[in-house]
């Protein structure tokens, strides 16, 4: 992953129902955030989505994006965590 990319890891967890992916991804589209990778699982009705997104071309800054996504999370009744990808690289790669 190139250093100049501003990559976020967006984690969405909660009880499964229709529309969670749509709500999150349409908010990202509204913010001009490019999705790099996405994965989603449902295990015993527990919905988990991991999404990698590049915000370098976005019309919003990190805090606005984080707040925007957390508002969507509240509407959908799911927990949304937004973090820079670098923390995972630091913790999980030697």
């Amino acid at each position: 992953m190139a250093e100049d990319e501003e990559v976020l890891v967006i984690t969405v967890e909660g009880s499964d129902h229709p529309g969670i992916v749509a709500a999150i991804t349409s908010k990202l589209a509204e913010f001009d955030v490019n999705i790099l990778d996405i994965s989603q699982t449902v295990d015993r009705e527990l919905f988990t989505m991991l999404l990698f997104a590049d915000i370098s071309e976005s019309n919003k800054d990190f805090e606005e994006i984080k707040e925007g996504l957390q508002e969507v999370g509240e509407d959908q009744g799911v927990r949304v965590t937004v973090q820079y990808e670098k923390i995972f690289r630091q913790m999980h790669r030697v």
């Binding site: 992953m1 890891v9 984690t11 967890e13 990778d37 994965s39 699982t41 988990t48 991991l50 990698f52 965590t81 923390i87 995972f88 913790m91 999980h92």
Partner: peptide
């Protein structure tokens, strides 16, 4: 995906 989902979820936990 460049990380295993377990790695991401471990950090969150």
């Amino acid at each position: 995906m460049i990380y295993d989902s377990d790695e991401i979820l471990e950090t969150l936990k």
